[in-house]
Amino acid sequence: MTALLRVEGLSKSYGALRVTDGLSLSVEPGELHAVIGPNGAGKTTLIHQISGMTPPDAGRILFAGEDVTGRSMAGRALAGLARSFQITSILPRFSALQNVALAVQARSGSSFRFLSPVDGEAALTGPARDLLARFGLAERAEMPAGALSHGEKRQLELAIALATAPKLLLLDEPLAGTSHAESARIVEILRGLTGSVAILLVEHDMEAVFALADRVSVLVYGRVIATGAPEAIRSNPEVRAAYLGEEAA
């Protein structure tokens, strides 16, 4: 089986600092691949490069068999590469429903339509309402997104990413700052996605990572030092020294 995403020899430096250092990894279709690593390991920069927000200095990114290294973020999104942001990125003045409906709109027909009211398009609001319901946000649909709680905003952002009907979701710490109940719900939703949508998950919550991941890669100083099944990673001495040991100490 060919990988859905293949990153080859990716490098990125900011001045003398090598944030991504010849990094390679792959995500299989339907797989949940978690990336863990200490702060400053270059996890967010990796997501930025895969999503097209930051151009790499060297290396290639292949998505669904195509080289997308030179493609814009919007182009990659339309090809099926959706992402969430570490710092919540929503449209605060739009209602929760409008936020999600806009993401549905991106993949359904031309947006150069000037005269018919978009709020009346059931083809957009229908799927958007379904997604909100899945995240337990149905009652919040008409609320301005900016007025939602922090945890609700995190969930809304996931709903937005899913609304683009992605093949691969790039999630940058989706559990950060959520309550226990909210993160349990998000973990449940991510578990429900496995098999249908591939996920590259950057997350600090080790409990969630080891519960969800099919494979785990450990990133240290911009390089993958180990990749494997969660159990293998947990018992890998190099990983323990570099990362997990820190937490235990």
Partner: peptide
């Protein structure tokens, strides 16, 4: 949407 958050808009494909 592009007025309020252009990066978000690009991330969903606009």
């Amino acid at each position: 949407g592009a007025r309020d958050n252009p990066v978000r808009m690009e991330a969903i494909g606009f």
